[in-house]
Computed example of a mutant assay.
Amino acid sequence: MLNAEQVTFGGSGLDRAAQHRGDAAKLEELRKAGHAIALWRGKPLFDYETKALMRISPDHQVLSEATDPAIYLGIEEDGKAVFAHDISPWEDPALDAAALSNFFDPSQNLYPGFEKTQVFSELRGIMAKMTPRDAELAATARGMFEWHRHHNHCAKCGAKSELAQAGWQRDCPTCKASHFPRTDPVVIVLATKGNSVLMGRSHGWPDGMYSLLAGFMEPGETMEAAARREVFEESGIRLNRVRYLSSQPWPFPSSLMIGCAGEAENTEIVIDPKEIEDARWFTREEVFAATHSDNPQLRPARKGSIAHFLIHNWLSDTLD
């Protein structure tokens, strides 16, 4: 496996066994003998003691909180299927409403009956602790639940659509149109010039937080063209050669981050204040210091993000 495929959420070889999605009898057989995972408002149920995404009985009490059907994710090497359940209707009496308005929600939510280490946690806070398999399952489930939450009406006629194909499709009973999970492509660019890398920060980010420049691809664009356009629009930096490095499913809410490397033609930064708050060139030495908590002017990208992955491999000179 290439180094580029080691990025968090990059895939673990899960057998999604799509041939079973339309077979109700087979799905019920798989459900009864399989595992369940649970998410609450986008937070997976995670055990901090074992550092694992919790797999629970298909008839566990917590799953009674779900009001929508489970989504079939696939079959693991032990032959057991995994189904994801969204228990968001549950009301946590200890909910910290203030935490929900933060850039990052650090709160943890304990469902009655679970151990104190077994809590619903913000995925961005635990993604770097997860095994590749757990990360793929959690990201897939979160992305699918977000899609269903925001696309429950037919885009063609406006009628309420219905879940089909074990969660991998929505069908409209009125006009008979079928709709499929959406993934938005985003380019994220490791733009370099000599010994320096270009990073920027969005409005409202915590002090000192910088990351690689990124933006959504537009219809009719190649990956390379989108990378050049986004970097120039946000920073005034023009890129010459652009090449693909790695990709990452990013379930916040549902994107595919396409990591690219680009060589800068100029160094003078002119930001678009509507797009970003600031952009700067950082040397390898400055970025290295930040990764070792020795640069108060720069907070390193969050571990598990493709930005962190690309920067780490740039520092290590191990980009594929």
Rank of each mutant, 00 (worst) to 15 (best):
E5P: 00
Q6I: 13
Q6N: 07
T8I: 14
D15L: 04
K26Q: 10
L27V: 12
K32R: 15
G34A: 05
W40Y: 13
T50K: 10
M54K: 15
R55H: 15
P58D: 11
P58R: 06
H60P: 08
I71M: 04
E76Q: 07
A84Q: 09
D86C: 09
S88W: 11
L95K: 13
D96S: 06
A98V: 15
L100M: 11
S101A: 09
Q108L: 07
Y111L: 07
F114L: 02
E115A: 15
F120E: 00
E122K: 00
E122N: 07
K129I: 11
T131A: 14
A139L: 06
R142D: 08
M144I: 12
H148A: 04
A159S: 10
S161L: 14
G167N: 12
R170K: 14
P173M: 05
A177M: 13
H179K: 09
D184V: 14
D184T: 10
V186A: 02
T192S: 10
N195H: 12
V197E: 03
L198A: 01
G200Y: 07
H203G: 05
P206Q: 02
L213N: 02
M217Q: 07
G220F: 10
E221V: 03
T222D: 03
R228I: 10
E230I: 12
V231Y: 03
S235R: 04
R243S: 09
R243M: 09
A261H: 14
I271E: 00
D272N: 14
P273Q: 01
D278N: 12
A289W: 13
S293W: 08
Q297A: 07
Q297R: 13
N313F: 13
L319W: 08
